[in-house]
Nucleic acid binder design. Structure first.
Lengths: 232, 232
DNA sequence: GTACTCTAGATTGTATACAATCTGACCCAT
DNA sequence: ATGGGTCAGATTGTATACAATCTAGAGTAC
C-alpha cells in the first residue's frame, strides 16, 4: 500500500503532500475512515513512509478545505457534518447557482458547445440505468460546474467547486434514492431549456427545485440512518 | 522591527506563522509592497528572524487566501488583481448577498439586535465626515458581514469573509470618491428598511445597487490610475 | 549575431532533531 | 470519595541540514 501511494505520487503529483491530500480525500469521501476518526502527523508519517513536513502540509490543506477539523493539541479528526452544516452548504450552492442561471438566461449563452454537450449527456442518461451512484454524483457535479464555467466567473467556480468537493459524499446518498436519477435528468433538461428560452424566472425556479430536492433527499436519508443507528 | 513582530507574535498569536500571515496581510492590504513584488522564503526568514517552517506555512496560507500567487520554482509574488478578477469578486459578493437579503426579508429578522445596531451606526454616519477611507471600508465590510451573520449561515459567511478580505483594498478606493460615504449611508438604510418591510424584491434591488455602485467606482478609479500611469 | 549547452546559484521539497505545550491519568491529601 | 497537584506521554511548533529541481546567464560554436 505504501509503495503504491509513493509510486502514484511520483507520477501524478509534483510533490508528496499533494499526493497525500489526494489519497486522504479519496478515503474520506468513500467513508474509509469513520467520522471523527483521529489522524495524527506521526501516524500518517508511518503509514505513508514520509517525513512530517509533507504530512503537515497535507493535513493543513485538508483542514482548510473542510475535510478535517483541527483540534488544538489533539491532532486532526475527520470532519463529521451535521444536518445543519449540510443544509448550509446546499444553501450556499443555491445562492451561487441561482446567480449562475440568472446570468446565463440573461445573456445569450456563450460557451454554447459546453451547454449542448450537457444536453446530450443528460438526454442519453434518461434511458440509461447502468450508472452507479458515484458516477451519477460526479456527472451531476459536472453539470452544475459546467454551467458555472459557462457563466464565465472563475472565482465563483472556485467557491462552488470547494463546496461540491465536500458534497460528493452526500450527492451519492441522493442518487441512491429510487427514481432520483430520472428526475434529475428531467430537472437538468428543464434548466437548460429555460436558459435557452432566456426565461430568467423559470430558470431560477428550475434550479431551485433541483437543488432543494437533492437537499431534502439527503436530509431524509440521514434522518433514517440516524434513526436506525439509535433504534437498538 | 523584527523584535516588534516577534513580541506581537507571542502575545496575540498562538504561533509564528499566524503572526507572519497577519503582518504580511496587513502590509499587502496597505500597499507596502508593490504589486507583483516577489517574496521568497529565505528573504522572509531573515526579515522575521525565524526558520523556514513557519514562513513556508504562512506563504502557503496567503497563497490559498489569494493574497499571493505561487510561481513554481520562482517563489511567491504579491497578487495583482486585474479589472476582470475584481469584477468577478464583486459578482460573487452579489450572488451571496442577494441571497442573504432575500433570506432576511422573507423571514422576520432574527438577530434583531445586530440589525438595529447597524441602523444606528449608519444613521449616525450620515452627518459624520470625520471617518477616514479605511475606517469606512471596514465599517462597510462589517455591515455586509453582519447581515450575512444575521441570515444565520456560517458557511456562507466564511465564503463572503474570504472575498471581503481581498476586497478591503478596493473598498478603500471606493470610499475615496466624493459623496460615496453619504450615498452608502442612504443605500444601507434603504436595504435595512426593505428587509424590515419584508419587501424581498426591493431589498434585492437595494443591495444590488449598493454593490454595483461600489464596483463601478473601483472600476473607474483603476481605469484612471492606469491611464495616468501610462500617459508618460 | 544567433542559438545552443552547461553550470552556478536560487528556490523549493523533504527529512530529522529538538523545544514547547497540552492532555489525561495517577497519586496523595483531605 | 473528592479535589487538586504532578508527571509522563502525546502532539504540535520550530530550527536546520540536505536533496532535488529549476532559472538565468555566461560562454562557445557556428
Amino acid at each position: 500500500m505504501v509503495d503504491k501511494v509513493n509510486r502514484m505520487a511520483k507520477r501524478q503529483f509534483s510533490n508528496l503532500s499533494a499526493s497525500i491530500v489526494a489519497t486522504l480525500k479519496e478515503r474520506i469521501i468513500h467513508w474509509q475512515y469513520p467520522p471523527e476518526h483521529r489522524l495524527t502527523e506521526a501516524e500518517l508519517c508511518q503509514k505513508f513512509s514520509v517525513s512530517r513536513s509533507p504530512v503537515r502540509e497535507a493535513l493543513r490543506t485538508l483542514a482548510t478545505d473542510g475535510f478535517l477539523k483541527k483540534m488544538p493539541n489533539r491532532g486532526y479528526a475527520v470532519k463529521q457534518y451535521n444536518f445543519h452544516e449540510i443544509e448550509e452548504l446546499y444553501e450556499v450552492r443555491l445562492a451561487l447557482e441561482l446567480y449562475v442561471v440568472e446570468c446565463l438566461a440573461k445573456r445569450g449563452t456563450a460557451k454554447k458547445d459546453d451547454v449542448d454537450a450537457l444536453k446530450r449527456t443528460w438526454t442519453s442518461l434518461l434511458n440509461d440505468s447502468s450508472k452507479k451512484d458515484e458516477a451519477l454524483a460526479r456527472l451531476d457535479t459536472l453539470f452544475h460546474e459546467t454551467l458555472a464555467h459557462a457563466a464565465g466567473n472563475k472565482s465563483l467556480l472556485r467557491h462552488l467547486h470547494a463546496i461540491n468537493e465536500r458534497l460528493l459524499l452526500f450527492r451519492m446518498i441522493d442518487f441512491g434514492k429510487a427514481h432520483r436519477a430520472e428526475r434529475t435528468c428531467h430537472q437538468h433538461l428543464e434548466i437548460l431549456k429555460r436558459i435557452a428560452a432566456k426565461d430568467v424566472a423559470g430558470a431560477r425556479k428550475a434550479m431551485q427545485q433541483n437543488i432543494e430536492e437533492g437537499r431534502n433527499n439527503v436530509h431524509a436519508a440521514i434522518k433514517d440512518a440516524l434513526a436506525r443507528a439509535y433504534s437498538f
